[in-house]
Nucleic acid binder design. Sequence first.
DNA 1: TATTAATTGAGAAAGATTCTTAATTCAGCA
DNA 2: TGCTGAATTAAGAATCTTTCTCAATTAATA
Lengths: 144, 144
Amino acid sequence: MNLNQVLAGFKEKGLKLTPQRQQILRVLLKAGGPLTAKEIAELVHKSFPNVGLGTVYRTLDTLREFGLLDEILFPDGGKRFELHRKHRHHLICLGCGQAVAFPFCPADCLVKVAEQNPDFDVRGHTFAVFGYCGECRKVQRSGG
Amino acid sequence: MNLNQVLAGFKEKGLKLTPQRQQILRVLLKAGGPLTAKEIAELVHKSFPNVGLGTVYRTLDTLREFGLLDEILFPDGGKRFELHRKHRHHLICLGCGQAVAFPFCPADCLVKVAEQNPDFDVRGHTFAVFGYCGECRKVQRSGG
DNA sequence: TATTAATTGAGAAAGATTCTTAATTCAGCA
DNA sequence: TGCTGAATTAAGAATCTTTCTCAATTAATA
């Protein structure tokens, strides 16, 4: 997914291509991993110092409505956002907050759950693995 | 796990058995499913109208430190709490917020993730399935 | 019963997200 | 190009959950 595709999609649905939205999209496209709303705002501020958090949240909402955004819930309740890619889950470091995607899905469990709860209309699932990344383990060992 | 066992554990660690804590524990023991902090406070208020949310959160923290509490993260970022039982996951209704536990664990995925990320120290995982329960589906069909 | 450290209530504070409102700006069209 | 109307924005207020602060209270123990 690139900026032009997303912008074309926006246009198609009658949404305005404001510079703020474009910049938020650029930030999300450039991001190496999922970002918090605050991080997105800070990165956007490099080009548009006046963009408010409200605009960031509104744009994220819009992207979510379009199915273009994934929300990642951290074990401590924190939220991060990234542009939607293939369905995937995350390996989350409790030390530095970095999240890395992986493509495995708990399919067996989903089948079992659906079988045992035939009345339940399954719409989705969350799955995340957390712990400490190599870097943070190094720091722990040396620092204390 | 019953109230007396928990209280004995408290005593053992030098914690005070205040009426507030006892009531919070009773509420958690009686609960049919995981509750929000606010719900816990409201139930406690029936017997102790002056118990503050602060006390509820402090007691939940204490229980968590003892490994007696599980925190359940909902897809929308909400949090609910319940006394720890066997390791389990939840089937969460997006309509009414009810959560039902199930015992399946995404073991295959965990093994694959660990194999592919040998530097990562895995400490835990989250897994939840969400959708709409039978009741909420009925309401949707009839109500519109 | 007196002592003491743990605990509490009340409210302030923090942090994330949503809402409000008046002002601005984009997109289509003359 | 320049209007026009609706969408969008910035700024800050409001909300919600959670944590913190602190003086007052209380449970446990001697």
